[in-house]
Design a protein around this nucleic acid. Structure first.
Lengths: 196, 196
DNA sequence: GTGACTTTGTGCATCGGTTCACAAAAGGAT
DNA sequence: ATCCTTTTGTGAACCGATGCACAAAGTCAC
């Protein structure tokens, strides 16, 4: 709506667009403060700013990517990060063959530099796109370098101290969810949850 | 646990491992049937099979990937799909430069073949890894070819008939969630939700 | 300025999911 | 065979989130 230049929007319209109840939407927004005008609605620009601020998107975050396989390259080139305040500050790999390569305008650095570069550039979030076997070791190292937020694409469950946040992205889970619904469609209503 | 050869497990242990309440875990499992033995617990192998079956993971799903950029390549090479019963049946791209290339043992086919190949190979799930501008058009075409489950990695909201399931994966959302918590950590307890 | 209209913000009822707590069931010991 | 221990499966209480409904607050037309 902001892109289309809409000036104001009612909770009713916003809720319809989001597929939720308008009362819930108003109550949720009210937690951020009273940014609406009765009789008018919410000013789109202002609301976008307030939500962005609350979500921490107005800050600039230095992110490092470890692992320059296809996924690492895809992430480094993904425009969505930059537009949301994430700055790729470093890219690492263990393979001497790719160290020194240029990925999305960044020089791939050797994993040996991990701790030093993280500290020097103030990296606060690390994205793990390494093979599964390397993930835990890299994880331990970034944690000891002081990083407390990790986004893990490797198919392993990482062990970290309680103070560290790990989010695991499993690309196959979404497929599994689709397959589950697909199975239901095909099976029809007889294939119920409690069927044997 | 199955990999470690554990024979049986109690709801208490499973719940602890999953980080949920044991009563909830038992109630959830009870929806699948009564697969536990009182005084003993659940047989790990059998439980894994029953859950897999219920989730549709025992079936073989033919998946097509459209868009052979870095992300498409990463997905095509991702081992997690195959191990969960997903078979990459086709890979498409619009660029004549990459058509004919070999990706994960598959020949990249031209997008013109989309409908024919989908029907011929019984593809039931399509993964969109195209640029944003191409996504809706490709989406329309796979829908008209009869596909009703789409996994969308392109940063656009797709418009589809109600009968079609679309799941959108936004790689930056997970980063945003981490950044949100990171912001909270840094700000300390004074930076509460209702602060100005 | 007044009145009609629109839309927010929120008290209150409702509802669904979570947890407690315990009877029922299974296994092992004597 | 009986008792004791363990653990499931589930009725019932509980609790937080959702939705309803309306007073309060603002806009707009005249």
């Amino acid at each position: 709506m902001a892109e289309r230049g809409t000036a104001t929007v009612s909770s009713e319209d916003l809720a319809a667009a989001a597929g939720v109840n308008s009362a819930k939407l108003r109550k949720d927004l009210s937690h951020l403060g009273s940014y609406g005008t009765r009789g008018v609605g919410y000013e789109v620009e202002y609301l976008v700013y307030q939500i962005s601020r609350e979500l921490g998107l107005t800050q600039d975050w230095a992110v490092a990517i470890v692992g320059v396989g296809n996924l690492g390259r895809a992430l480094a080139n993904y425009g969505g990060f930059v537009s949301r305040g994430f700055r790729i500050a470093a890219v690492f790999d263990a393979d001497p063959e790719v160290v020194g390569d240029d990925i999305a305008g960044l020089n791939v650095e050797h994993i040996d530099e991990l701790e030093a570069v993280i500290k020097r550039r103030g990296v606060s979030i690390v994205v793990l796109a390494t093979p599964a076997v390397a993930a835990q070791e890299v994880c331990d190292r970034v944690v000891s370098a002081g990083v407390t937020s990790i986004l893990n694409f490797a198919p392993v469950v990482l062990t970290v101290p309680d103070s560290v946040d790990v989010r695991k992205v499993d690309l196959s889970i979404e497929l599994q969810i689709l397959a589950f619904h697909e199975q239901r469609k095909a099976g029809g209503p007889l294939m119920a949850v409690d069927s044997q």
